[in-house]
Simulated assay, not measured.
Amino acid sequence: MIESLAPKAPDPLLKIIKMYREDPRTDKIDLGVGVYKDGEGNTPVMRAVKDAEALLLAGQKTKTYVGQQGDVDFLKLVGQLAFGAMSREFVSIQAVGGTGALRLGCDLLREAGAKRVLLPAPCWPNHPSIVRAARLEPIDAPFFNITEQRIDMDALIASFAQAERGDGVILQACCHNPLGADFSLEQWTQLAAALNARGIIAFVDLAYQGFGDGIDEDVAGARRLLEQVPEAIIAISEAKSFGIYRERVGALFVKAAEKSRAAVMSNLAAIARANYSMPPDHGAAIVREVLSDEKLRASWREELDQIRSHIKRTRRQLAAARVNSMPMHLIADQKGMFSTLPLDGAQVTRLREQHGIYMTDSARINVAGLREADIPRFVEALKAVA
C-alpha cells in the first residue's frame, strides 16, 4: 500500500529555496523566503524575546500540558492587541502557528455546513491547500490587477455570487501576502455589507500586525468589519510580529452569538484534539511575557517600529526607481513584506539564471528581505528583463 504512493510536486517556494541554496554565486539575492531581514541580511531575535526567554528559563517550574484551549493569558493579551475591547466576546483557542489556526477555522466552517471558501486572487499559495485539506472547495475570486497594481472591488464583490449562505471568504487583515495591497476603511465597510447581504462568513487572516502602518492602524479595517458582521472567524499568527517564526505561535478567534459560544468552543476543542491534542507552549509563553510586562512591551514596540521603518524605507527606494513601464511608484503605497511585480515566468527565470535574483514563480518579492546595498543591482536587473 505505502509503496504505491506517487510523489507529490514540491512546494513552489521550497523549490526556490533549494535552488538559491545550491547557487554558488556570492552576489545572489534571496527575495523568496518570507522572513524579515535587517541591513546585514540577518533575521535577528528581538531583544524583548530574549529577555522574555530568560524570565521563562528562570521561573518556569513545569513542562506539563497547558490545557486544551492553550495559554489563556496569551489568548487574552493577543485578543486585546488585535481587537481591543470586543475580544472579550470572542471564543478563542491556541493553534500551531497561523497555518494551524487557518486549518482549525476551515474545519470549523465544514462542521457548520460550509461547502466552499472564496479566496481573493492572487492569494497566499497555501490558502487553497489548507481549504482543500479541510474538504472544502476553494473558489478563486478576482481581486487585484497586477499590471495596474490596484484592487478591483467590483470584481471581488461580484464573485461573492459564487458562494452560498454559510460559506466563507478569507480576507487578509493587513500587509497582504503576496500583494502588499490592503483594503481601505471604506472598502472594509463595503465588504461587511456585501457579506451580510449574502450570509457569507468572514474569515480574517491576520499575520503581520505592526508591519504596515502600526499596531492599531493595521487592524482598524478588520475591526470595522468585525463590528458589522454577526459571525466571523479570525486566524492570527505572531511569527512575524515577534520574529519567532520557528516557534509556531498562532490562535483562532470566533465571533458568534452568545448562545452559540459553548458549542463553538466544544467543536474547536474536538477538532484540535484529533489533530495535535495540546498546543505547544514556548512561543505563546514568550508572547505572553512580552505583552504582560510594561518594559518588555515597550522594547518590543520600539523594535517593531524600527522594522516597519526599514520596510517602508526600502519601499520608497524601490518606488523611486524607473524600470521601463513598470509602475514601481505604487510599491511605496503598499504595505508590509510583500509585493508582486508584473513579470511573467520567462522574466522571473532570466532574473534567476542570469542575475542570481530569486523570487517566486509568480514574481512575488519579499521587500523586507532586500538589503539596501542590493537595491541598485536589483533595479538594473529588472531593467534588463522588463
Rank of each mutant, 00 (worst) to 15 (best):
G250W: 03
D167V: 01
S292L: 12
E186C: 09
N145M: 04
R223M: 06
S159A: 13
D11V: 07
H282A: 14
G39N: 14
H127T: 14
I130T: 11
D51L: 08
D293S: 12
C175A: 10
V379A: 10
R313Y: 03
E111L: 11
H127K: 14
G97A: 11
I234H: 02
E302N: 13
N275M: 11
L268Q: 00
S325C: 10
V78K: 02
A257Y: 11
E3Q: 10
A163V: 06
E372V: 12
R315F: 03
D11Y: 12
G100V: 03
P230S: 14
C106M: 10
D154R: 05
A321F: 05
I375C: 15
I365W: 01
G199F: 01
I139Y: 04
V66S: 11
N366M: 09
I170R: 01
P44L: 07
R88P: 03
E247D: 13
Q228D: 07
L119W: 06
E148G: 13
A386R: 02
C175W: 04
D152Y: 04
N275R: 15
V72P: 03
L56C: 04
L118I: 07
S277D: 12
L191P: 01
G180F: 06
K295P: 07
V117M: 08
N275T: 03
F143R: 09
V169N: 04
S241I: 04
P10I: 06
A232L: 04
S309W: 05
R308V: 07
G180V: 06
D293C: 11
T26C: 14
G97C: 10
D23F: 02
R364H: 11
Q317E: 06
V348D: 06
